[in-house]
């Protein structure tokens, strides 16, 4: 079962790497969002430092959604999902494996790119550290919730708009606590730990809910 899980993760990573797009596209989107903000709000360093965590998180959240609409749709269309349902893995673990591969291919590069983009927004070192921690805990949650939208897009053959409409409302609590944790680390008065622990709780909840709900959507659409 572990072998089947890892085999699926490895295949999806290979597909993401070879098909192009994937990681590169998300990071470039993230970069463009963050890079245009100083032009829009002006070169006020104090203001940029204050809104920086919010800008970075909005950019990362939207970038996490890129590519989700093909995540299950490709496997539904070419029959892979039907053939996979004969595997030792239940559909929930198939969804989890695909989510893990998607996060490694698109979420992890965002976490790695974030400290460099944070410098452009004049964040101080404490805030950058907090930002990376919240992204590490929060982007897997966004991807897991995104699995639900991805499953609907794949199962009902509807495009990407559905994903944003379905997933963003679910991801708003993650955004709220991630940004407030980063702000708390930068300027207080709440300690960083309080909102960060709520964020971790939300992430754990999403990691369970996402694959289970995605599997239910795929099952409902199959007949």
């Amino acid at each position: 079962m572990t072998r089947a899980f890892l085999g699926l993760v490895r295949r999806d990573l290979a597909l993401a790497a070879r098909a192009g797009g994937g990681a590169g596209l998300g990071v470039v989107f993230f970069l463009s969002v963050v890079a245009v903000v100083p032009f829009a709000v002006g070169p006020d360093l104090a203001l940029l430092a204050r809104i920086g965590p919010a800008i970075l998180w909005i950019g990362a959240m939207l970038a996490s959604l890129i590519g989700l609409e093909r995540l299950f749709a490709a496997d539904v269309e070419d029959g892979s999902l039907d053939a996979m349902s004969g595997s030792l893995l239940p559909l929930e673990l198939i969804a989890a494996a695909k989510g893990l591969a998607h996060w490694i291919a698109t979420g992890l590069p965002l976490v790695i790119a974030a400290p460099f983009l944070a410098l452009m927004l004049n964040l101080d070192p404490a805030a950058i550290g907090a930002l990376v921690a919240t992204l590490l805990a929060g982007t897997p949650a966004v991807t897991a919730l995104g699995l639900i939208g991805a499953a609907f897009a794949g199962a009902f053959r509807r495009g990407g708009l559905l994903i944003a409409v379905l997933v963003l409302p679910l991801a708003i609590p993650v955004l709220i606590f991630a940004v407030s944790a980063t702000n708390a680390a930068a300027s207080g008065p709440v300690p960083f730990g309080t909102p960060f622990q709520v964020l971790c709780g939300l992430a754990l909840f999403a990691l369970v809910l996402g694959p289970v709900a995605a599997a239910a959507a795929l099952r409902a659409a199959r007949d």
Binding site: R11, E77, G86
Partner: peptide
């Protein structure tokens, strides 16, 4: 059960 459907379940990128 092995299910062989209409689609080949072949990934062109691999």
């Amino acid at each position: 059960v092995h299910y062989l459907g209409h689609e080949d379940a072949v990934k062109g990128a691999l």
